[in-house]
Amino acid sequence: MTTLDPATPIAAAPRPVFKPNWVRLAPWLYTIGLFVLWEIGVRISGLPHTILPTPTRVFEAIIQYWSPIWKNSVQTLYTTVLGFMIAVVAGLGIGLFIGWSKAIYAGLYPIMVGFNAIPKVALVPILVIWFGIGTVPAVLTAFLISFFPIVVNVATGLATIEPETEDVLRALGAKKLDIMLKVGVPRSMPYFFGSLKVAITLAFVGSVVSETVASNSGLGNMMASAQSNFNVPLVFAGLLMLAVEGIAMYALMAWVEKRMTGWAHRSTMAN
């Protein structure tokens, strides 16, 4: 039997070598890959710019029309975020109200589902009749389309309190309000912040739909008029800007979620 000599030096610490972090780079590489494939595909097939422009042509259009694109992007971001913020406040309020009691939940839930089933684009003409064309219907459409997931998630968080937790607190003489404030609301926060990611994306859908149908500004309106002029690269430039805004807002919401409810992501933090 051999014994290990404690004096034997253990292998020297490995020399630090440059090793790219592929996971961090992956989103960028895949995005670039997508554009490259798109470019090659269009060039090989010889499709005209009026059908499908190459990404280089789209970037050209972005530079060429930067001033209107910027103005309209800011307008769309403004209507979307405003509608989204109203949806957050209203969704949180209505979600807490619905989650409060089984009777309210049972009564309001079918109405909410029915309301959510209505295509929001069909509401835009009504909003135009009430508020005229422009910013207000866009904000309201963004709000109407994005508040449902927030309501459902907050209500779900409240409705799934563990019965044991409730028993422990009720046995101490806790009122309904105590249980809601101490357990229900904090418990529903991961659901709430999770729903924000879904809601912000939907809010963009709402505002752009409304701008396309009934507005004189915003990316939706810009793309609609570019399309009627057969300026397809500008249409794609608008789509690209929407995608960028969407990703940025989604990332912001994901960051907020992580900041506010770190305890709910404990599997990644525990170690």
Partner: peptide, 18 residues
């Protein structure tokens, strides 16, 4: 009505994670 002189503990610890 619930008597407040009791303390309860269940098999599930039901600690609030936040």
């Amino acid at each position: 009505k619930p008597v407040s002189i009791v303390g309860m503990a269940f098999q599930n610890p039901t600690m609030l994670p936040w």
